[in-house]
Design a protein around this nucleic acid. Structure first.
Lengths: 357, 357
DNA sequence: TTGTAAGCGTTATCAA
DNA sequence: TTGATAACGCTTACAA
């Protein structure tokens, strides 16, 4: 299996482990009748220093042989790759896929290839992934969604990323904070605070909050932000219900609230939209009509928020922007900047203006 | 910048184009006091033929230097990579991200890395992507979502993929058909036909169909499938409204139907859920109450289908399964099999049983 | 069981 | 402007 004399057309449906064999620069050079160095220059290097005729020859040969440069070979020869590695918790989750979309777009514009790995919510897996990723020698590593605090692997992860950066790699974190890397965050606290004020302005005074475990930073920030927005309004302290960060969590919390008696609660803030949507369903089933008997607000402004009945008041977060900014940050010279993205309150029918008492 | 004498800690925040420098096998070997070949064997090769003591030595050295094998170097030395390249139209679209999720999971289980590229709906871009991808020499290329027919680039794409396969690569297409590659499809026709029959069984007789341009294969298949399910029932031919494949498209078609007078239509089939959801909104706004005045059904069974009011009748498609099966197919020895995945009718409140006349 | 050395497909340096 | 040739980081005969 050394060199080959012809354009390389194997015949049988090769086994799944067989190597993918393709035309090499060597083949192109031979076909064009020039040296391999010239071929390299004409194709991927400084075509300036190659006679026009040879450039044409080489290009033609490449086209004829359907040549594509072997990226791995280029990577090791050049000592650097053109890839950015993206770690997400779950591709199927719109939260992450929106971010991924932004990252991919910005990367493509910069001529970079993105490889994606899914951490699946496990910090161990996440660590393992970052390790493997380093084997790719990507220019950039973007980690998003690891927002669970207090795990031991956390420190190891930071260690690993620091080393990668010391080695010349770029690290950007999305929706983390207080870590010594470039960071893009969404203003969960500010958004929640603004929501609280908007709700006050609409006449609501007595609240309940559906939140997740406080180790989930996002949930905690939104919860605390909401409280801070209420600060100074003289309203009673909101009831707090801890539950899952999911639709079912919201559903379950709403049931609990109803069982307890929801009469004294004017509005519920669920720390994300899917929870809010679950709550909507539970309230409706219990005969408590959302938007009339009780206000409901969420966070994220997912697409369906507008199609649920009543349309859901929420806080829009610029997820794609977060991805775009992460790439921008990675390509900038500031390795440790913090880019906060504003969240935007969007009032809808689920929290109508309350009539003056 | 040749060799280095110490564990490699550069200092300054390197420029975004600087190479990522990391410990090499050479460093590990030196640290462990063995030859580079032994180090290679101990770490990534047949550790069996290495004295246990040396294995330990090498492992320790690797850990100390935080060594990760350079994947590109391995790729070119071994002549094959462990990556699968996935082409999607849009990561942010739940349709594709669900598929991506399945692909990623199966790939991870098989020890493969997935790199993702986004074609953005442009056939030219798609072709370009497949070209670049070939440079990665992936073991597998999975293309999903290019379902627009009749473009000239289409043939070129097939050509390109054929060549890749001839070179030993695996190709799997998702939701395409009649192409000489491994293929995973979702049974759009069958699902729509089953939906039609289910609706007949619930007493509906007069239908309208909201569909997209017939060049969009998915739309056409669902439309035709629906008609075939009606076949022989003696019902009048459904009205057909061509519109966008989006929420706004569904909204707009519903408005048109209402303006025309919807009195003689008992149920609407929108060829996907977001269209159906848009239609729901338009009907409600026009005072035509979905689920009472008119039945509405969609396709895809997206998550929010159950939270919309009334809950939407739909056809569930196993998107994650499609991704998983695509990987399975790619790893199997059958390079050209066709795996059809069944779609499942899910009846909900948007199409209640009609009272007997 | 180990080490030497010849690749793998590129790029980059250096003469010519 | 070109062509030899030495890297790049790794794997893998082949010998020892």
């Amino acid at each position: 299996m050394t060199a080959m004399e012809e354009p390389p057309p194997p015949t049988t449906p090769a086994s799944p482990t067989a190597p993918v064999v393709a035309a090499t620069l060597h083949d192109v050079a031979r076909e064009a009748g020039v040296s391999i160095a010239t071929a390299s220059r004409a194709l991927n290097g400084s075509a300036r220093n190659v006679r026009a005729e040879n450039v044409a020859r080489v290009r033609a040969a490449a086209a004829k042989l359907d040549y594509e440069p072997h990226l791995s070979a280029q990577a090791i020869a050049k000592g650097s790759t053109r890839t950015v590695a993206l770690v997400v918790r779950d591709v199927a989750d719109p939260y992450f896929s929106s971010i991924a979309s932004g990252v991919t777009q910005a990367a493509t514009e910069a001529g970079l290839i993105v490889t994606m790995a899914v951490a699946d919510g496990s910090p161990e897996r996440e660590l393992e992934i970052v390790r493997t990723l380093r084997g790719q020698r990507p220019r950039i590593i973007i980690v998003t969604g690891s927002r669970i605090e207090g795990t031991a692997t956390r420190d190891t992860l930071i260690e690993e990323l620091s080393q990668y950066r010391t080695a010349g790699g770029r690290v950007v974190l999305i929706s983390q904070r207080d870590l010594p890397f470039g960071t893009v965050t969404i203003d969960d606290r500010g958004g929640s605070a603004a929501l609280a004020r908007a709700l006050l302005a609409r006449g609501y005074r007595r609240f309940a909050v559906f939140h997740a475990a406080p180790s989930l930073r996002t949930s905690r920030d939104r919860h605390e932000g909401f409280l801070s927005g209420l600060y100074g309004s003289g309203t009673p302290a909101p009831l707090a219900f801890e539950t899952g960060f999911t639709r079912d969590g919201g559903y379950e919390a709403a049931r609990r609230l109803v069982e307890r008696g929801a009469g004294d609660v004017e509005a519920v803030f669920a720390v994300n939209d899917v929870m809010a949507v679950g709550a909507l369903a539970a309230f409706r089933e219990a005969g408590v009509l959302p938007g009339r008997d009780i206000g409901v607000a969420g966070f994220d402004d997912i697409g369906p928020a507008v199609d649920v009945v009543p349309a859901l008041t929420s806080v829009a977060v610029p997820l794609r922007e977060a991805g775009l900014n992460a790439m921008r940050l990675a390509l900038s010279d500031d390795t440790t900047a913090h880019v906060p993205l504003p969240a935007q309150v969007t009032l809808r029918a689920s929290t109508p203006q309350k009539p003056a008492p």
